[in-house]
Design a protein around this nucleic acid. Structure first.
Lengths: 338, 338
DNA sequence: TTGAAAGCGCTAACAA
DNA sequence: TTGTTAGCGCTTTCAA
C-alpha cells in the first residue's frame, strides 16, 4: 500500500468562486444550480463557470443537505439478508435509474434484531427516500420514527401492505404454494421443503415454507421442512435422508439449492422426476441447463426504472396519492424435473 | 400504494433537547456523542438522555458532516459494471464490517465514460473513504480531484498500483493466463476465449483476454476471442462455430458462461474434454455440480473485515504508511472438463 | 440583474 | 462542571 500525501490543500468554497468571479455567493449558487433562469446574465454565468472550473470547485453535499433539510440519499436497508443474484441484478438497475434522477443509493447494512435502531440510523441521514426490500421487517414504531424525523417517502417490498409505506406487494409465500400445489397435482404426496441454514435466508425460507404448508393443507399432502446448507456434503446427506424417508418430491428453496440437491439425488441413483420430483425458484438460467431441466418459479420483476420514477415523483410531490399497491407477480415454469 | 400523511411534525433538534433538559446545546452534544468523559456529571447525563428519549431526538448527519468537514460515508463506485455474485457476496460482508466501525456504505452508480465527473460526484459527499473496486478506471485526474476535495483515504482494487491510492493488487489478466497456460499444457492448440457481450463486463473480459493472449504467446498456441451473450441460443451458435472452426478448448470468461457453453457443446455432441476442453472462472459451486465437473480459477478473497479495519485505521490516522500492497491471489482448480 | 444576510443543526474552543 | 459562541458551506428571501 502506498501512503497518502498529508498536505492539506485549502478547500475551495463557493465564496472563493464568487470572489474570483467578482460576484456574490448568491449568484454563484444560482449559476451552478442552473437556477439562473433569466436572473443572471450570460456574461456573468460564463464568468462564474470559468472561476469554478479554474479553482476546481466541488459542491458540498452535507452543506446542501443541511440547508435543504434533506439529503439526496435513497436508503436501501439490507437487514443482513444475503441478497441473492436475482435481487442484486435488480438493485443494479434500480440504482442506475435513481442516480439518473440525481439520487445516490445508500445500501445500509442494518442489524435485523432492532428495527427501530435501524430506522434511527437511516433517519439520521435525512434521506430523500427509504426503500425497504424486506418490508416485513418494518415495525409500526420504525415507521413512526421515520415519519417524525421528516424522512422522505417510505417504500417497501412486502407480502402485505405496510401502513405508512408505499408497498409493492410481493407474496413470499406464493413460491412455496405454487411449487407444492403443482407437485400435489402431479400426484406427489410426501414433499420435503429445503430450509437453507445460511444466515439471512430464514425470513424468505419461512415464508416459502408457510406457502408450502398452506398448499399442502389444501391438497391433502404432507410437507416436511428439511434444513440444508449450501454445501455438497450437506446436500448428499439430505438426499440420502429424503430417499430413506420415502419422499417423492422436494421444493428446493431456490434454484441454487435445488440444483445442489438435484445433483446429490442423481448421484445417489434416484430417478428424477420418476422417484423424486424437484422444484426450484428464481428461474435462473441454470434451471434450463440442468438435466433434467429444473422446474422453477419465475418472478415477473417490477421494472426498476419505473419504481425509481415513482419514488422520484413521490419525493417531489409527497402529497400525491399513488395508485393501488403494485403487485409483483410470479408463475411456475414447468420443466422436466417435476 | 398508500398515500403518506402530509402533516409535518416539528423537527426536534439538539437545542430542543437542551431546553427540555435545562442544559446547553454543547452539553447535549457531549453527552449524546459519549464525549462527556469527566466533563459532565452523571446526573446531567441522565437528564439529557431522558430528554432526548422523550422528544425522540434523532441526530442530523448532514449537520454533523458539515461541521466535521467530512461525512461518515464510504463510497464504493460501481462504474456500471455488472457486479457478479462472487463480488456481491464479498461486498455484503465488507459493508457489514464497515458499518461495525460506524460507517455507512454508499454504492455509487457512476458512469464509466467520465472518471473525473464520477470522482466529482463522490467528492461532493465528502466521504470518509472511497474504495474503487475497478481501480483501472481511476485516472490521475480523478485521483487529484479527490485529493483536492479533501476526500478521505482512497483505496482501490486493481491489476497495478494506483498512484495516490492504497491498492489491493488483483491481477485481472491472471485468470486468462492461468486458464490458457493450463490448456496449452494439456496439449490444446486452438483456444477460444468467450467475450461476454453484456454491458459492464468488457473491462474484465478484456483483461482476461489479454492474459490469455500473453500465455498463448508463451506457449505458442492460438487464441481467438469469441463474443457471446448469456443466452442459450447464443451459446448454441457459438458452440457450433467452435466445432466448425476446429477449436479444441474454450475459456468461458466465468463459470456461468462456461456452464452455458458446456451445455451447448454437450447438446451438440461434442465430447468434453476429449474434443473440447472448457475452463471457467470464479470457482462457484456450480462448477462442481456440472458433469463433467468444470475446471475453474479460484480467487482467494481478501478478508472483508480485514480490509474494513485497514480503511478505518487509515481514516483515523491518514499519516500512517501502510505495508506493501496487499495482493489478492488465485489458483486454478483442475476438474474434469479440461 | 445582482448583493446582503439569515440560518439550516451541529461541535468544540474558550469562558465562566 | 457547564454555558457561550463562532462558524462549517450552502441556498434563498428580500432589497437594491
Amino acid at each position: 500500500m502506498q501512503p497518502s500525501d498529508s498536505s492539506e490543500p485549502a478547500r475551495v468554497t463557493s465564496a472563493d468562486v464568487a470572489r474570483l468571479a467578482g460576484v456574490s455567493r448568491a449568484t454563484v449558487s444560482f449559476v451552478l444550480n442552473d437556477t439562473a433562469a433569466g436572473r443572471v446574465s450570460e456574461a456573468t454565468c460564463a464568468k462564474v463557470r470559468a472561476a469554478a472550473a479554474e479553482l476546481g470547485y466541488i459542491g458540498h453535499a452535507p452543506a446542501r443537505s443541511l440547508r435543504a433539510g434533506r439529503s439526496n440519499l435513497v436508503v436501501i436497508p439490507t437487514f443482513d439478508a444475503a441478497i441473492g443474484g436475482l435481487m442484486s441484478a435488480w438493485l443494479d438497475g434500480f440504482q442506475t435509474a435513481l442516480s439518473g434522477h440525481g439520487y445516490t443509493v445508500v445500501v445500509h447494512a442494518s442489524r435485523a434484531d432492532d428495527p427501530v435502531a435501524a430506522a434511527r440510523s437511516w433517519a439520521e441521514l435525512r434521506p430523500a427516500a427509504v426503500f425497504v426490500v424486506q418490508g416485513e421487517r418494518l415495525t409500526q414504531a420504525a415507521v413512526d420514527l421515520l415519519r417524525r424525523a421528516g424522512t422522505g417517502p417510505l417504500f417497501a417490498l412486502s407480502s402485505t401492505p405496510v401502513p405508512g409505506a408505499h408497498t409493492v406487494i410481493l407474496d413470499s409465500t406464493l413460491p412455496g404454494a405454487l411449487a407444492v400445489g403443482h407437485l400435489a397435482d402431479r400426484g406427489r404426496r410426501r414433499i420435503a421443503v429445503v430450509m437453507p441454514t445460511e444466515p439471512g435466508l430464514d425470513d424468505l425460507a419461512g415464508s416459502r415454507l408457510a406457502g408450502a404448508r398452506r398448499a399442502a393443507a389444501t391438497h391433502g399432502v404432507e410437507v416436511t421442512p428439511v434444513p440444508m446448507s449450501y454445501r455438497i456434503d450437506d446436500a448428499e446427506k439430505v438426499a440420502a435422508r429424503l430417499r430413506a424417508d420415502g419422499h417423492d418430491a422436494v421444493y428446493g428453496y431456490n434454484d441454487d439449492y435445488a440444483a445442489l440437491l438435484l445433483r446429490a439425488l442423481l448421484d445417489q441413483g434416484s430417478a428424477v422426476p420418476d422417484e423424486v420430483a424437484v422444484v426450484g425458484t428464481d428461474d435462473v438460467l441454470i434451471a434450463e441447463l440442468l438435466r433434467p431441466r429444473l422446474t422453477s418459479v419465475h418472478f415477473d420483476q417490477v421494472p426498476a426504472d419505473q419504481l425509481a420514477g415513482l419514488i422520484h415523483q413521490q419525493i417531489l410531490e409527497p402529497e400525491t396519492t399513488l395508485e393501488a399497491p403494485s403487485v409483483a407477480t410470479m408463475r411456475l415454469v414447468v420443466r422436466d424435473s417435476s
